[in-house]
Design a protein around this nucleic acid. Sequence first.
DNA 1: CGCTGTCTTGATCACTATCAAACCGAGTGG
DNA 2: CCACTCGGTTTGATAGTGATCAAGACAGCG
Lengths: 202, 202
Amino acid sequence: ALLLTEGMPSAQIFTVLSGLGLRYRSRGTGRRQAMSFVFPGDLIGLQSEAEGEMGHTVEARSRMRLCVFERTALWEIFRDAPRRAYDLTWRAADDAHMLGGAGDLDGPRTAERLVAWALVQVWTRAKALGLVDHGQTPLPFRQQDLADVLGLSLVHTNKTLAKFRHRRLATWRDGILVLSDPETLARIGLTSSDAPRSRRIL
Amino acid sequence: ALLLTEGMPSAQIFTVLSGLGLRYRSRGTGRRQAMSFVFPGDLIGLQSEAEGEMGHTVEARSRMRLCVFERTALWEIFRDAPRRAYDLTWRAADDAHMLGGAGDLDGPRTAERLVAWALVQVWTRAKALGLVDHGQTPLPFRQQDLADVLGLSLVHTNKTLAKFRHRRLATWRDGILVLSDPETLARIGLTSSDAPRSRRIL
DNA sequence: CGCTGTCTTGATCACTATCAAACCGAGTGG
DNA sequence: CCACTCGGTTTGATAGTGATCAAGACAGCG
């Protein structure tokens, strides 16, 4: 189901309560390029105010529960709780590109490191949200989506995932992700600075 | 001169009135990795956690004039002009990573395309600011900085620049940038179908 | 002068995109 | 029940691309 469509002005904004989604852009030939994964706690519907319409589309990839705000309510938050509003805005801008956070990588951005980084990212976030159950978490995306998000080719992404699977580090099949060895993956993804994760205010 | 230092809480925020700066992060071995270029109109001193410490350093690379705000004044803007505050915050978050905007690229992010994109970016921005004079604009950074910003190696960045220079598309020397053929560069930066050797038979 | 920082260039090797083809499960229609 | 499609995953071959190593050029500087 489409929550927001590119080019449409949206009167509401949402926060995701549960469920996962995909944020993507339409490319020339009907092709869509995934930009980032949408997790519970994310705010969607915000965009650079300069342009009135959405610059991307958000699609639910699993059943989602949303909390709906009128856009006007946003301005009240700005007035009543500026710090929080500030944080919300910043995060929304940040979430738009998943790659943004990968700027932390020191040295070359090899496929191995990018994919490892992304998996760990997803994993830690899922764990923080209590989505990890029996050592597994839902990840209802296609390999192509991950490839897009990371700026890699589908084929190469696939091969990298295969490598991890073979090394028994991570398995991602049928929309289910299992990180058997998060520590090693984290080391591979080596986010050089174990930067203090921006705490999410839900 | 350092305007803001990583790890230091800064009581003020600034808007750049004139002059260029460099935003970078310290890496393990005293190495600094450039994150983005700072142009007039940019807001600096904002950061993901409203009052935490700075996550990066901003250094002036030419004489700069700044407009200083007390941080507390920011909250007043939030209260009195929420839309503007929203826009400011969004832009500040966006400016933090220069690469963010390069997500627009379709197809592979080759060095040629990234560098062309960056040069055009700088050029159009400089032109909008009236910095282009006699067909040239100041760009007081090192090739290493551009390499960092784009996530390329110094050597390769250098070679790509040399290629452009040789093709008489752009020259960047001694901190002065000249785009002789912005249109062609823009085409290289944006289009995926520039493929010189796509010997596809139709 | 030698020193240091930046730009430059060549050689080499690892990495990644691309092309193609095969595979697999889930539908679908005869 | 069997083709037959369809979207997604998997694999191999090949060529282009970028990182790395190493060395040289050149200016500013103590």
